[in-house]
Amino acid sequence: MAARHRVANSIRRLRFDAGEMTQKELSEKVGVTRQTIVAIENAKYAPTLELAFLIARAFGKPLSEVFTFEEE
C-alpha cells in the first residue's frame, strides 16, 4: 500500500524572519485571500505549483526552502 504524503511548509517561520509579515500582507503579495494563506500554513490546503512559486518568491527563497514533501 502506498504511503500517504503531505505538503508541509515553513511559511510561519519565514513570515517571522521577514519582520513579522502578516498573513494579510503575504496574501496581498501573492494575490490570494488571507484565508487561503491560513489554510496553507495549517496544511489544510496544498497550493498549486504556481502559487507555491509565488509564495517562495515573496520571501526570496527557493521553493524547497518553503515547501517540503513529507510522509505522514
Binding site: 496574501s27 494575490g31 490570494v32 485571500t33 487561503t36 502559487l51
Partner: peptide, 9 residues
C-alpha cells in the same frame, strides 16, 4: 474588505 477570489475558492 477583500473581494479577492482565488484558486482555493
Amino acid at each position: 474588505p477583500s473581494f479577492v477570489t482565488d484558486e482555493r475558492d
